[in-house]
Design a binder for these strands. Sequence first.
DNA 1: GCCAACGTTGGC
DNA 2: GCCAACGTTGGC
Length: 152
Amino acid sequence: MAYWLFKSEPATFGIDHLAACDKMIDSWDGVRNYQARNFMRDQMKTGDRGFFYHSNCAEPGIVGMVKIVKEASPDLTALDQGDCHYDPKATMENPRWVMVDVQLVKKFKRTITLKELRDHPGLTSMTILQKGNRLSITPVTQTEWDIISALV
DNA sequence: GCCAACGTTGGC
DNA sequence: GCCAACGTTGGC
C-alpha cells in the first residue's frame, strides 16, 4: 500500500466538501499537471491512503485522511466546455487527464500546520516541503506517514 | 530543440 | 497584494 498527499484549496474544495459528499466519496478531478496525473494513472491503487492538505488559505496544513476507492479513469471534465478545467486538447479517444475516487476516512480534530511539518526534524525531505514544490499530488513515505499520524 | 514570455501556484 | 518558483506555450 502506498501513501499520498492531496492538496486542495479549501475555498474551492476543502475537506468539509468531501465530508458532505454521498458516502464521503468524490472524484479527484481537475488535475492538469502531468506529474500529478502520472501518479494517479500509474501508481495509485485501491486501498492506498492519503493526507488531505489545505493550501492557499489562512492555516495551510494537513486536515484529514482519505483512501483511494477507485483507480484512475478518464477525467471527463476536460471534455466539458462549460467546466473550468476544460482542456481543448482532450478528446473522447484521448481524454488526456485522469482522476481517482477518494473517500474521506477521517477529518482530524485539528490542522497539522505547515509550520509544524517544517519544524519536525524527521520530515525535512518530505516532497511538499521542498522549495518551489507545487505538485498537487505527491507521494508520502511510510516513515513520513507514521510521523505525521503520530502528530494528530 | 531552444528559450523568452506568460500564466499559475501558494506561502507570506 | 507581493513575488519566487515552476510549468507551458509558441516562435524561431
